[in-house]
Amino acid sequence: MKRWLPLVFFIVLVGFFAKGLFLDPREVPSPFIGRQAPMFTLPLVGDANASFSPADMKGRVWMLNVWAPWCVSCRQEHGFLMQLAQARVIPIVGLNWKDKDREAEALLARIGSPYMAVPEDLDGRVGIDYGVTGTPETYIIDQAGIVRLKHIGPIGPEVWKDKFEPKLKELGA
């Protein structure tokens, strides 16, 4: 049997490589995919009397974008989100996460807002419900309120084309 030893050794080696090399550290599987999006009701930035809840979006495919005014990568994807909003591709809700300095309203007024609503998650509790590890993170939620996709990091044309478009097509939106 010893003549098989080199082969066995090599297979173990390849196994390691395959496991290690193709693990993308950014791909954290979200336990929420395929489950009901956690419920919340939060006041809106700029209008504390109005509020937003995922229940408002029932029957529509929509995108929840977790961002913050202090987040640099969010500024990076801002331009692309503006394009999406202008082309009315999908309704985008921007969860304003841990904005302790309350900068969001002024910032959006200055650079423009791609969001149809900006709920304010001051203490980050809703973010925890969604398993947010950092900003920006983006979720696609379907007509039945089920999370269908989670993306960590900024969105650009390529990510959109490779990851979001096929999913949206699948959802018929």
Binding site: P25, A68, W70, C71, K98, K100, D101, G124, V132, T133, G134, T135
Partner: peptide, 13 residues
């Protein structure tokens, strides 16, 4: 830096 970037976004502010 990667670790810190993640941590920062959860801890700071």
């Amino acid at each position: 830096l990667e670790q810190a970037a993640k941590a920062q976004q959860t801890i700071v502010k």
